[in-house]
Design a protein around this nucleic acid. Structure first.
Lengths: 211, 211, 211, 211
DNA sequence: CGTTAACCGAGACGGTACGTCGTGTCTTCAC
DNA sequence: GTGAAGACACGACGTACCGTCTCGGTTAACG
């Protein structure tokens, strides 16, 4: 379980003064086991018993931390969809690449890619999971949009460019290839994708140089 | 039950001369009920009992046709992801629009859009469902790619355009908005999307006229 | 199917003028198959499908004759518990023996003995079956009682003898040995049983001769 | 739950230290409910769901203790057919009466009498149930036989008396009346029955006194 | 001799019980 | 109080049976 996920506190517990303290390492172990189990068997195929066995804990230990299977999943999903930091290198292509890369990363890292289909499915019927997913997506999307806006203000691209549409096409291509075509997109392919997309909005001179 | 789905034969039964024949209307009713139930409650939330009640049949009638809940879902998924016919209007934008529209349609029609998240989730763990999904996606994608290729041969767009990437961005934007942002994309928005994407590959003069 | 049971008409059918007539041989085949199936697997273990297969008929052919599994069983039970004719040889012991023998026979004939436990069990919860059973038992019991009464009127036995109790003890011993001890009682044993029972009511001189 | 049945351990569980212990009161509640349900509806009419509801437990709690409906019934049958202790009052008639009474009791106590027909039916097809039944019957029968043998050794009855036959007639009369005639036999009737039977073996002087 | 109608085998159909298994709660002992 | 273990109520799954129905095909009696 090397790629252990950094976990915030599962449940608010103000100051547990008396008795045996809770073993915080188990939180991470459970979340890791959840990601692995759901990735391997899907959400409906995964069982609490299986997650507990994978984490080496009892079922009660899981229920003490999260009220239900859904809550555990939601928490695990939030743990793997961690915010990404924006960058501003001055180069439009580099900025856009840096903004899109985290999305590609989410779709590429094995444990996350495995979780995503179940995450989408549950989000469709569970408002809490939907909210978790939306928050992450909106955050990464907003960073990419701002990178495009900065470029437009700098005059790197034509003024008619719709930043939202551009970003949706880029991120969408990644999602589409991953979920519907079953193909991974590595960093080089992401760069090629960004370059092609930039044609649609780059200034004429830049376009000629690229061709 | 107006939007009834056209159903191929559920199970290969060459010509069962003896005994009471199966009621083919029940096949359609069960598939419709499955799509509705899974759309409403998700795959894990749906129950065979609920599907049977919705279709007005007994549980045994479902199990006689499909060995398990998973098989039923696979079949229902295949029934809703029916091939679409290509078009060749001569206008590049129109062709591309026509090629992309079925994908948008899949994401927009209520019963299918509701099914898609569960379909993706199950596809990740069930090779048969995955195959069903991939076949449909590859077919619609291929039609769109061919529309772009025709345009390139006619000289409507620059020769360096990568048809696959262009189509993936268009279809991807639709999927991304639907699944991750939770937004529907109507026909007008699809047209706007296509127009913006075309900027990346249109011949210079055309580009100026559009701007 | 050698020991075929003589079957009265299963269902009253006044005068079926038109159409293919019912095959009466199937009635007997079905009843025989029922007795065999219930004897082999018990009432709850037997299935209509199994009975139909054993009789070489379709399930519908059974349901056309008897409305339910219970009705079929009741009919089969009535068919095997056929009335017995009384005898009056003049000798008390012989008369009593002749009156008891049918009861022993019922408990000894393989197909009937196998049916009896299920018959008793169903009789406890089904008034119709109970009535069938009671009628047969009462008939054979009455014949034995009358044999005893004749002997008393002739002065063969003491006047204080309670005929009912005597008969119940004789028949009861047979039932007890068969059902609770699992032992068969052959004709010789029945004769020994009758002889011992007669001691309780025979005239003193007879008793001394026997001892 | 007044007439609660004293239950031995349902399944051999040496000393399960870990985990929540089984609630032994539920064993008794389930057995009681089984006896009641089977008595009311017969074996085939009774359902696990109904037994569980009557006992106020979930179905799983029943299946955790007994692998199948048949096993539960076998266990319940063993629980109600509990050994009886012998008596030796010195009076032959009293001893015999005391030895026969438990058999009459089994046939008279409502919950047991209701169970008996199903018990007999299942015993015919299930060796384990048959063994349970046979053991109980043989035990009570042996006690009665020994009471007769003691009387013969004391000289209370004629030496030619066959103890087994005498007992079989007494017990058989009770069973016959109950199962085949549907009549209950109360204590007074049992006493009358014993007295009449004793005529067959009592010493002449005693016989004259009784008449 | 052709119509007609009931029969027969086969099997689909709605319904229901069985026995298994997973969820979420609880209760025990050990630490 | 925490943790492992497992009992508990509840409910879904997939199987099997019941009693009803609907097919194609057969078989007598009627016209």
């Amino acid at each position: 379980m090397s790629g252990s996920v950094e976990t915030p506190l599962a449940v608010e517990r103000p100051t547990p003064r008396r008795g045996r303290p809770r073993d915080d390492r188990l939180d991470a172990a459970i979340v890791d086991a959840t990601v692995a189990e759901v990735g391997a068997k899907g959400w409906s195929g995964a069982t609490i018993e299986g997650i507990a066995a994978r984490a080496g804990v009892g079922r009660g230990t899981i229920y003490r931390r999260w009220p239900s299977k859904t809550d555990l999943f939601q928490y695990a999903a939030a743990a793997v969809t961690r915010p990404v930091q924006a960058s501003d290198s001055g180069s439009f292509v580099e900025d856009l690449f840096a903004a899109i890369l985290p999305i590609a990363d989410l779709l590429t890292r094995p444990e996350l890619a495995a979780l995503l289909p179940s995450l989408l499915a549950e989000a469709a019927n569970d408002p809490a999971i939907q909210q978790t997913l939306r928050a992450f997506v909106a955050q990464s999307r907003q960073q990419a949009i701002e990178a495009v806006e900065r470029a437009r203000r700098r005059g790197d691209i034509v003024q008619t460019t719709d930043a939202e549409t551009l970003v949706d096409m880029l991120a969408g291509a990644l999602v589409y290839r991953r979920l519907l075509l079953g193909e991974a997109t590595d960093a080089a392919a992401v760069r090629a994708l960004v370059r092609q997309a930039v044609q649609s909005c780059a200034m004429p001179t830049v376009t000629e140089e690229n061709s």
